[in-house]
Amino acid sequence: MTNNIQVTKKNPAYHLKNIQHYYGNTKVLDIDDLKIEKGSITGLIGPNGSGKSTLLKLLAFAQKPTRGQIFYKGRMELPFSTSIRSKISLLTQKPYLLKRTVFENIAYGLKIRNEKNNLEQRIKKALLNVGLDYQNFTKRFWHELSGGEAQRVAMAARLILKPEVLLLDEPIASVDIESAGLIRQASLNARKNWGTTLVIASHDLQWLYSICDHQLSIFKGNIFSTGVENIITGPFEKSDQKTLIKKLEDGQIITLNAPSQNACTAIIRKKNMVINLEKQSGNGHINQLSGHITSMLLEKKSETIMATISIHDLSLIVLLSPDQISGLDLYPGKKVILTFHSHDVEWI
């Protein structure tokens, strides 16, 4: 299936245009324009039910979006299309293993491609890639594996296919630290050896930031290409016609400019947040919230540090430069004042 977009080397791996997807009457995805570059590793961050798995299914062409078009390398493709089904592989959150042995599970993809040469050696290598021993595992049946082992066998079954695109949905949700490291390494190797484009959804920010070139955050089906952003959910109270407030249980109040239309979730970009050590004098439109730093994460590409500030039961993120960290002597556990303007809010 082709359309008028020319296939050139410059085309991204994916280009999603005006995508909307519904389950019944509920909109689960709303993406105006999204490009994913070839050979990139993209992290997908978002709470449960935000639309991560649906987006991965659309990217795997296993589902048709209700509206919009998905271009793969410049060509518009439809679900289950013959031309791409052998190029893209999706590892679901709860991987399904066929009711067969580990060997047969890993060999399945190769067999349907009629690639039966050197099967044993290739399976041995694929298992080794995910840290499983060929002798111990190859003859085991699907029901003789732990959750983590099943996850790694499923990963091996995809890696052996050397896919152009590998989509991983919570690949380390049920594995230990060592396995998470192996899956990370296997993903990086896939990109290095075969130029595989990876899109990985995970709740483990630290793991995700250690592997991804960039992150997309997704909330209620909306994509934020700047990675994790601060989400403040209601209930909000009306302070005046133009202002909403959220009262935290510890007595602190967040003041936000009211949305122009019906919306119930506030997004505050992390770039608009500032850390101070003491409260500054200011007007009522500036929020100054007292909290503690709970974690600090290095964002590889920008070499900035993403600090999470816990304000009672709310976790907010702020970007800091290494100079700010050393200048303010910041460390996890330190009490800080998080400052942001009430008009720096977007509503969805």
Partner: peptide
């Protein structure tokens, strides 16, 4: 979904 993602045809 697994079969599709492993490249299986109809």
């Amino acid at each position: 979904l697994t079969l599709v993602s492993l490249g299986a045809g109809r």
